[in-house]
Simulated scan of single mutants.
Amino acid sequence: MDKLSIIVPCYNEQESIPLFYSAVQKVMKTIPDLSYEYWFVNDGSHDNTLNELHGLHQKDPEHVHFVSFSRNFGKEAALYAGLQAATGNYIVVMDVDLQDPPEFLPKMYKLIKTGEYDCIGTRRVDRKGEAKFKSFLSDMFYKVVNRISNTEIVPGARDYRMMTRQMVDAVLAMPEYNRFSKGIFSWVGFKTKYLDYHNVERVAGESDWNTWKLFKYAMDGIADFSQAPLNIAVWIGTTSFIISIIGFFAVIIRHFLDPDSSIFGWASLVCIILLLGGLQLLCIGILGKYLGRIYIQVKNRPIYIIKEKK
């Protein structure tokens, strides 16, 4: 009999957990030929998330398991921990807020069971209910990253996907500290089919992903899967150098053609210095971003630390 591992990262989701469990249980009962297990990952929550997980484990010890971190390590670390803990030959990643419709599970299993696909993913065709500015930034991110990266990231794609054990093992073989799962899922390859659906709002609680966190996450994705920022820094430096050389010769020629003319005032000089200084700082910052990621990686610290596991 096939076994499905359901990976559920949780951060301050005490209200959503019982609703999620109830909704998924109803769906799993419609797939009698499939055994299953839950792996909830408590990502250092500050509310009663851990108590809720203890209660679910006591209620259903056969199916419900959880990993609890020593502190908040982030959703990417929680997802990685869940994939490592999973024992099923099929693995699905879901958000606990029910924005990932559980009703898709039977169809996903039916499709992946055929052996034609290694992954059944999902993608939102709209962002109804979200702030327009956040939706705009998200759309721009997909356009930019797919233009500058060799790894295609499907617009609107969710982490909600069902994968074969072979694909999950390939993902786990990439133990990088700074993780961007959407990019990793695409980078490892394997044949993927996407199921479209309209945006679903959270069933309870509030999202911890504000605009600033999403922006930083997007920057991580670009840095992980593209060297375009480094190339931009090179072009900025080259362009600035060429312009300065042209300006240098222009000043010399003007001096010989009209020795009595005043050549640029102090205000122009200050602007030029600020411009070149700003460009230099920008390029140094881009280099620092990549060097910082290398520094963190070579320290070889664990991606997460487990405090409790059941």
Rank of each mutant, 00 (worst) to 15 (best):
L275N: 13
M219R: 13
A85P: 02
S262I: 14
Q297M: 14
T30C: 15
P102C: 12
I243L: 04
D60S: 10
D118K: 13
S207D: 10
E201R: 06
M1A: 07
P259E: 14
R293H: 08
V154C: 11
T49E: 03
A267W: 08
V64M: 06
S226T: 04
P18L: 11
K26R: 06
G88V: 05
A228Q: 06
N72R: 15
L275C: 13
P61D: 13
D60L: 10
D43I: 09
T49C: 08
L291G: 03
C283R: 01
A223V: 07
N150H: 12
V144I: 15
L4V: 02
F136A: 12
S262Y: 04
N300M: 11
W209D: 14
V251K: 09
E130Y: 09
V203E: 11
L4F: 02
L105T: 01
G285A: 15
V41P: 00
M167C: 13
K29I: 12
D208K: 13
L56Y: 01
A131E: 05
D196T: 04
P155G: 10
F40V: 05
A78D: 08
K128R: 13
F264Y: 13
Q84P: 11
V92Q: 09
A233T: 01
N42I: 08
C283P: 06
V24Y: 03
L137C: 09
V93M: 01
T211Q: 15
M163G: 03
M94Q: 02
S16P: 01
T49A: 03
I7Q: 03
E76D: 07
K216I: 12
P155K: 09
M28C: 00
P155W: 11
S68L: 03
G237E: 02
P175Y: 05
Q280P: 08
L50D: 04
L291M: 13
V171S: 05
F73Y: 15
L105E: 01
G221H: 03
V27W: 00
M94V: 02
K299D: 05
N42S: 08
A233D: 00
K309G: 10
I245D: 05
I17D: 00
V234E: 03
L4G: 03
H54C: 06
N89S: 09
S22C: 04
Q227G: 10
G265W: 12
F248I: 06
A81S: 04
H198W: 09
D169N: 08
E176I: 06
L83I: 12
D224G: 09
F69K: 01
F190E: 03
I6C: 04
F133H: 09
Y109N: 06
F190D: 01
V270R: 13
P101G: 06
R161M: 02
D95H: 01
K307S: 07
F69V: 11
S5L: 04
K289M: 10
I253V: 12
G74T: 04
P229C: 11
L214M: 05
R123N: 06
V171L: 08
G278C: 02
F136S: 08
L276Y: 05
S5P: 05
S138F: 07
N150C: 11
D126R: 05
R127H: 14
E103T: 11
I120E: 00
I296A: 15
Q99Y: 03
S207R: 10
H255T: 15
E116N: 12
A23W: 00
V125T: 15
